[in-house]
């Protein structure tokens, strides 16, 4: 009996490794291809010239001004998106949970809605809005951040929702209030510290999404990192691919950090 079970277990573990390996190959192959492509010169010899070019910050902003601008824009976008998203979502979701539980379904629906709207439709819908934004706030790539907030809403909502579910917001905030804290204090000193993990993961997801966004920026004829890479690809494929690889690895690291942070409960701090 136990022999059969052991055999089955061994078989399952073999199967698991096969699957993992296949997945790794699936993801690693293109990356390896990119690495290979960016480390060859015209004669097919190995060279680090492309990467050396990228690391030289001044060189990049001189030789590839669009790429530098796109990079700066994307970083700015990531920051704006994260800030607006958090300021919008955290108080709203907390408040709905505390005071308007009847609205929670509606809020969830609204937040998840962007998942079902294709980027192109979003752009069509946003075009008139953005003509106003441009009119009032001036012409700048950074305002794309508002569209990105909509884009990251479902993911951010999910992470924050998980965080809010894990704590008893109602009791905690009532305890805080009975001890003399106003709503602002409750938010900053009671709710936020206990949502740390959720807020971090929402922020990480927003950053990863923003850095990888192409469609909306391109359709609005704005230059962010991905758009710059795309156009660079037509003139200098090697640099473009190298940047692509770098940003992929960066996004991967962000997600890796996220799973690391998420795996730890906020209250599991050491006491000594």
């Amino acid at each position: 009996m136990s022999g059969i079970r052991a055999t089955r277990r061994r078989r399952q573990s073999v199967l698991r490794w096969v699957v993992v390996t296949l997945c790794m190959l699936f993801f690693a192959a293109p990356l390896a291809g990119m690495l290979d492509f960016t480390t060859k010169d015209a004669q097919g010899n190995r060279t680090g010239a492309t990467w050396a070019k990228l690391v030289d910050v001044q060189g990049v902003s001189r030789d590839y001004p669009d790429l530098a601008a796109g990079f700066t824009a994307s970083v700015g976008l990531a920051v704006l998106t994260v800030v607006v998203m958090l300021v919008l979502l955290v108080p709203t979701m907390t408040w709905v949970r505390l005071r308007l539980p009847g609205l929670s379904r509606t809020v969830e629906f609204l937040c998840l809605l962007p998942l079902t709207v294709p980027a192109i439709v979003l752009v069509v819908g946003l075009t008139p809005v953005y003509s106003w934004v441009t009119y009032f706030l001036g012409e700048s790539t950074i305002w794309l951040g508002f569209a990105y907030v909509i884009l990251v809403l479902p993911y951010a909502y999910r992470s924050l929702d998980v965080g809010l579910r894990a704590i008893d917001v109602k009791t905690l905030s009532e305890a805080g209030r009975s001890l003399g804290a106003g709503w602002g204090t409750v938010m900053v000193r009671v709710v936020l510290p206990n949502l740390r993990t959720a807020v971090l993961s929402a922020a990480f997801l927003a950053v990863a999404l923003t850095l990888g966004e192409f469609t909306i920026a391109n359709l609005f004829s704005r230059t962010n990192l991905q758009v710059a890479m795309f156009f660079l690809g037509k003139s200098d494929a090697q640099v473009s691919v190298a940047v692509g690889l770098a940003s992929l690895v960066f996004a991967f690291l962000v997600l890796f950090a996220l799973s690391f942070v998420g795996g730890r409960s906020p209250s599991r701090k050491e006491t000594s």
């Binding site: 008893d168 905690l172 805080g176 206990n194 209250s267």
Partner: peptide
């Protein structure tokens, strides 16, 4: 003092 545990976890 509440019925539910209400200590601030952090």
């Amino acid at each position: 003092v509440f019925q539910a545990y209400s200590l601030f976890p952090h």
